[in-house]
Design a protein around this nucleic acid. Sequence first.
DNA 1: GTCTATACGAGGATAGAC
DNA 2: GTCTATCCTCGTATAGAC
Lengths: 215, 215
Amino acid sequence: MARQIKAEKNLNSRQIRDAEATQAVILAAAEEEFAKHGLTSARTEAIAKKTGVAKSMIYYYFKDKEGLYQAVLERSHSDLLQTSQQLDLDHLSPEAALEKFLTALLDCVSRNPKLPLIMFHEAVQNQGKYYKRSSSLSIDTKLVKILERGVATGVFRKLDPFQSAINIMGTCLFYFVGAGNIQQHPQGKRLLSKAMLEQHAQEAIALILAGVRNP
Amino acid sequence: MARQIKAEKNLNSRQIRDAEATQAVILAAAEEEFAKHGLTSARTEAIAKKTGVAKSMIYYYFKDKEGLYQAVLERSHSDLLQTSQQLDLDHLSPEAALEKFLTALLDCVSRNPKLPLIMFHEAVQNQGKYYKRSSSLSIDTKLVKILERGVATGVFRKLDPFQSAINIMGTCLFYFVGAGNIQQHPQGKRLLSKAMLEQHAQEAIALILAGVRNP
DNA sequence: GTCTATACGAGGATAGAC
DNA sequence: GTCTATCCTCGTATAGAC
């Protein structure tokens, strides 16, 4: 955005200088590209083209494609990581904790719908080797703990906490995989519109809470 | 396999001639590669290396990488497609239909755990454009129909059938994404072992059935 | 049918002018 | 800081011998 303004103020000189703006633009475009293609089949040329800046700027700021990828990973996970760390759930009932956890998770991914896709590619293609102290792992164990507590207390069914944690994550995140594919709701609403995202959050939470509760 | 036998019978001649066997070997290796990387970042060289046959055989039998990809798509979806067509669910109660549907789906993907990964890549990377009369679409609408019936009858909660169908698919399929990544169960069991796959099917079905039921 | 060798294009990365 | 031009590796695809 800052870049845009400078560009207008300075129309006859194509070489705008704004390090932060340039990096931001590159990161945004890279996030899109990596979300769609993952590290290996993402194209630096495609990223450069989307930004309008020269391809060499990528190497200037991020060293190489891998460096850019790591920057994108960090940036796109930081929100989720921070949010999950701020959640303190131990003083809540298992059911309340689970709902709070899911709300926070769905909130994060609704704000950044590309995140699940990035996670997916990273998991499948690279076996998560670019997650050092993986944010998604730490979030997963948080969920397992909630489920364990609920089963022990008897408010949740006798379910396997480990398996169920994976399945619950799937319920929340799979939607975003389909989003690029399905595009159109029968009624013609986009899957990533604000209304649909909110509905997804509601539906997912309802399905999961009903699914784990002890009848 | 047939290839292996011939190879042993004929050790001094490297040039074994068995069209079917060669194609089968290539298809198997390609399925693995495409599951991990999708069309774009799959490498024909990697596929050839895994098979032991010359890279040019891929082009001889499948014309090009895209041709091979389509062959893999068709082959790996045929089981699911056939299974889903053979299901006739209209005479069953919504709950029984849903259980039967889920059992069949989980059975298919447990037999071929690479299928969800292939679907995923195809959806994200290519927006499903290689699905002509998409098998996964037809299966999805089947699920929507079941849910609609259940809601109408009142045996299911008031849920959105479209949204819930996606979430249910996520519950079943996301597991296979994690499988490559998580590798190890806390107790040291592999996620794709027969026992774990069966447990996953049970857990997923239980979660979903409890999740949709009207209390 | 199968192999080896190679042509050719795409894409990652760098050099150097401005 | 930004751009253009270029290098060079890697990967798809083909040619041609066996």
